[in-house]
Design a protein around this nucleic acid. Structure first.
Lengths: 231, 231
DNA sequence: GGATGTGAATGCATTCACAGCA
DNA sequence: TGCTGTGAATGCATTCACATCC
């Protein structure tokens, strides 16, 4: 009817896209040149049909009789996910988790760069965190460090550095208030580690990681998965 | 046909159960005595029908005209998730993320207790980590610390302490090998923070958290959500 | 009135199965 | 032969709508 109507893309397909990318990068490290939907699927415990359908939502990337060329597909998936360009990311919260995130240096290879850290605790403002050296990785890499900024500088920093993504690693009580400040400052996507449900405008992307929730899921599965039939 | 056949429980329903619990605990802190499916749903951006159906998979917990009694429902959901009893949890990996997890003290209130930490790095073995004091929380609480154990003690510790859950916070290259060791030691559920797809037996529960995947999902949504129609 | 629990209806996502291409 | 891309069929999950109860 409406020719401008685009086929809806299943959310689960987008989630799997990230897994395909991760797996493809692993294949590339092993110098694999091509991979079939069957092989890619098996490595992730998915069916070949699932893999083909997911990728086909976004274009025709495969070659009948051959499979998918690893390099090409990596480039395509990065483009689709938007990580072919670098995203500047900020962090709110310089507590235990925040420090672990600052020290984590797997961001850059994935297209994300942590560029600023904020905290509301006056005793932390202005303090330098780092330098962080890569654990178990090339020690000759340039060491990074961060100077903790006050929230009063949030908006200006977001604008100055063109930051669109924020990671929230703060106590639960403070999370909503700080999420609001991020949104007001122009942030377009939030990764929330606080164990609370945040209210944010519909046009802002959000993703939450709650450690307790993850463990509870394991608890349930370990206890009851053999007894109750899971769907 | 088969009277022993139990209605399959949708996986998404189990995931939401954890969110209901979190939200109910928040309502309890605000001294709410009862809550309706509509109110609980709105706080999590879900429909009331969704909430009722999810809870009804597990029993009849509500009261027509009243709603759900907060205390009762908390107890029921905890029982369903299996967190009415304490789970001993071990951690593999005393790196940056591992240290953040050791310092995190939100476990206990949720029914999980971190009781042992392992690392393969000989220079870390025997070292004490901590004491950890609760940030922004009651400083009078007993301070905890951990002595890093070698992997050779994994199995005996799992057996001695009745540990069934493990958190894997290790580099990607080591993750599969260490997951295997956990399984061999009797671990029944794994929470994996390494950015790799693990192969484990079907009867072992697994849950993975990959920071890059989370950020990629945001990247996609921010870039294309207004353009492409998401399902 | 105000709320639950639940079959029935709808809407999504996955899988099947096969035409078509290298 | 080996593999993709894709309509059609199936299987799940969500929503509707209403009988039922406080």
């Amino acid at each position: 009817m409406d020719p401008t109507r685009i086929d809806p893309i299943p959310n689960p397909a987008v989630r799997r896209l990230s897994l395909y990318l991760r797996q493809l990068e692993s294949f590339k490290r092993k110098d694999r040149r091509t991979v079939s939907s069957k092989q890619l699927g098996e490595s992730l415990h998915l069916t070949d049909a699932q893999v083909r359908k997911d990728l086909a939502y976004f274009g025709q990337f495969g070659h009948p009789g051959i499979g998918y060329r690893v390099d090409d597909l990596i480039a395509q998936v990065r483009r689709i996910l938007g990580t072919d360009k670098i995203w500047n990311v900020l962090l709110v919260g310089a507590g235990n988790l925040g420090r672990a995130l600052m020290a984590y240096n797997g961001f850059d290879a994935k297209g994300f760069r942590l560029v600023a850290v904020f905290d509301s605790d006056p005793s932390k403002i202005g303090k330098r965190q780092g330098p962080f050296s890569a654990e178990g990785s090339d020690a000759s890499k340039p060491k990074r460090f961060f100077v903790i900024q006050p929230l009063s500088e949030l908006k200006s920093t977001v604008e100055k550095m063109g930051i669109r993504l924020a990671i929230l690693a703060v106590p639960p009580d403070a999370a909503q208030e700080l999420a609001d400040q991020c949104v007001e400052s122009g942030i377009r996507g939030l990764l929330n580690f606080a164990p609370v449900s945040l209210n944010i405008p519909r046009d802002i992307a959000i993703n939450s990681v709650d450690l307790a929730v993850q463990l509870e899921q394991l608890s349930f599965q370990v206890n009851f998965s053999p007894l109750v039939q899971l769907g």
